[in-house]
Write a protein that binds this DNA or RNA. Structure first.
Lengths: 259, 259
DNA sequence: TCAAAAGTGTTATAGGTACACCCATGT
DNA sequence: ACATGGGTGTACCTATAACACTTTTGA
C-alpha cells in the first residue's frame, strides 16, 4: 500500500536544513529512500514517581505490543500533530492515571539513533510525582498491565528506559530542593516527621530531627495549625499545612527550601 | 509533485502510539491528510556563549533563507537520520566555528506547535562556551552573516529563539556552579582575578576579593604555579592552573566549586 | 611618588552538626 | 510502667560577609 506526499511540502519542511536543501537542489530527490526523510517521530515518556509512607516507586506499564512486547516500560506516546510537548506528557499521565492537574517537569531528551528498533524516534522525558494511593489502576489500550515498582530491584526495561529513569531520578532530587513538591504527596495537614521522611526518602539520606525542625521554623509558607494528631499511641504531633499565598510571595524573591 | 510512501512502514512507525494505531485500524487511513503524519521534524539549536575579558556574548547568525530571512537566530539544523542529538549539535558547532572538541550540554527541548511557521518542528537546545577570540568567523551556507552579540540589547530573534536563549542562560549559570568550565575560556595559566571576573560575569554579581581567594585555596584542583605575571603596571599576580588529575579524583566524590 | 591591582588579616555573625534530654499519649 | 515518637535546648565548630590594611610593580 502506498500513499501520496506533496513534494512541495517536503521542500518547505526541509528548506531550513542545509544538507536537505542541497540534496533537493543538487541530487535526484526521487531516488532518496523515503525512510530516510520520514521514518522519524518524537514521543514523550513519563517517569511517574509515586510516594507513600517512606516508599518511592515508579509506575511502569507492561507493553502489550511489539517492539519489546511483554517488557516493562515507562508510559509514553507519540506527540500528536497539534499538541505541545507538555500537553502530550499531561495527556499520557491523564490517560493512565485519570489524574489531571499534576504538575510535570521536562528533564531531558533522548535521541540515540538506535534507541527505537522500528525507526528514528527521539523522546522527551518528563517527571511527575503523585501519591501512590491516589492512583486507581487504569485499563489502558497500550498496556497489558500497570504496576508500581520499587526503585531497587528494577526489571529489565524496554528501549533506553533505564537511562531515562536514572536521569529522571537525578531530576527529582534537583526539584525537591528547589520546590515544595511534597504538597502533592503529603496530606493536607501533615506532621513535621512526615515532611522529614519525605526528604529523607527522596534524597536518600537522613536529617537530624532537631535541626530539621529548626530549619522548618524559618520557612514562612509552612504554617503550624492549632490542631493535633489523634488516636496515636504516642505523644500527638502538631499538624502543619502549606500556605500557598505566603509561598507565592516568597518564591518571587528566589526563595528555596535549602536543607 | 508527489511521492510514494509505503503504508506498511507507517504502521510500523506508529504502532506504539495508541491514537495512531486506532486510526489506522478503525478509520479510513487514506483520508487522513498526510501532513498530519509527516509534516514534522526535529532539530538542534546551539546557544554558543563566548567569553572574553569580562564580556559574555552569544553567537548569532543572520538567516539567509525563509522563514525569518534577514532575522538573527541561533545556529541550528535538522538532525540527520543517522546522527545522535549530541552529534548534531557538535556538527553545527564545528561547521560554524571550525572548533571541535567543545563540550556541549543539552538544556531543554522546545516544542510549541506553532513555533515553526512551516511545520511541526521540535528543537533540542544545547549550550557551549568558548573563548570569543578563538573563533574564526566562518563562511557558512546557511548564514549570510555571523556575529557575536552582547546579551544586553539583543535584536529581535527568529522563531522562539528568545525563549531558548533565556533558558540557556539559566542553564549556563547552573553549570558554572557545578563544573569548572572556565577551563575552556581562561588561558592555560591564569590569575585569581581572572577567575573571579569569570564568575562575576556569568553569575551577574560580585564577590569579595578576600573571601573568594580563601575559597579557592581549599579547591584542590586549582594549582598555584611558581610563576608570575610580567610587564604589568601593578604588582604582578601569581599564576594558577587547572589540575585535571586532581579534579578527576575529587569530582568522583561529588565535589563542586560552591562559591 | 602615585596609581593599580595583588595579597593578607580581623572580626562579628549566622548557620550547621551532634548531641542530650524532657514530654504526651495508648496500651 | 513502658514503648513510641513528639518536641526543645545547648554547645561547638565552621562558613560567610564586610572591611581594613599591607605589598609590589610600572610609569
Amino acid at each position: 500500500m502506498f500513499f501520496l506526499v506533496d513534494l512541495a511540502k517536503i521542500k518547505d519542511m526541509t528548506i531550513t536544513s542545509r544538507a536537505f536543501k542541497s540534496r533537493i537542489e543538487q541530487e535526484d530527490l526521487y531516488s532518496i529512500p523515503i525512510d530516510e526523510f520520514f521514518k522519524s517521530a518524537f514521543s514523550v515518556d513519563c517517569v511517574i514517581f509515586g510516594y507513600h509512607e517512606k516508599q518511592l516507586k515508579v509506575l511502569l506499564i507492561e507493553r502489550g505490543t511489539e517492539p519489546f512486547e511483554g517488557f516493562w516500560a515507562l508510559p509514553g506516546d507519540l506527540v500528536y500533530p497539534l499538541e505541545d510537548l507538555d500537553g502530550a506528557a499531561s495527556r499520557v499521565l491523564k490517560d493512565l492515571t485519570s489524574l489531571s492537574e499534576i504538575p510535570i517537569k521536562q528533564v531531558h531528551t533522548f535521541g540515540r539513533v538506535d534507541r527505537h528498533p522500528l525507526g528514528r524516534v527521539i523522546t522527551v522525558a518528563y517527571i511527575a510525582l503523585v501519591e501512590t494511593q491516589d492512583l486507581k489502576p487504569q485499563a489502558s489500550s497500550w498496556a497489558s498491565a500497570t504496576k508500581w515498582h520499587s526503585l531497587k530491584r528494577m526489571p529489565k526495561l524496554a528501549f533506553d528506559h533505564k537511562d531515562i529513569l536514572h536521569s529522571a531520578l537525578d531530576g527529582l532530587k534537583d526539584i525537591v530542593l528547589r520546590e515544595p513538591i511534597w504538597t502533592k504527596v503529603l496530606p493536607e495537614k501533615f506532621t513535621l516527621t512526615q515532611l522529614q521522611e519525605f526528604y529523607e526518602t527522596i534524597l536518600g539520606r537522613t536529617f537530624d530531627k532537631g535541626n530539621f525542625r529548626k530549619k522548618v521554623q524559618d520557612v514562612k509558607y509552612i504554617q503550624k495549625l492549632d490542631e493535633m494528631q489523634r488516636n496515636v499511641n504516642h505523644r500527638p504531633s502538631a499538624l502543619y499545612r502549606f500556605d500557598e499565598k505566603k509561598y507565592n510571595e516568597n518564591s518571587k524573591k528566589g526563595f528555596l527550601m535549602d536543607i
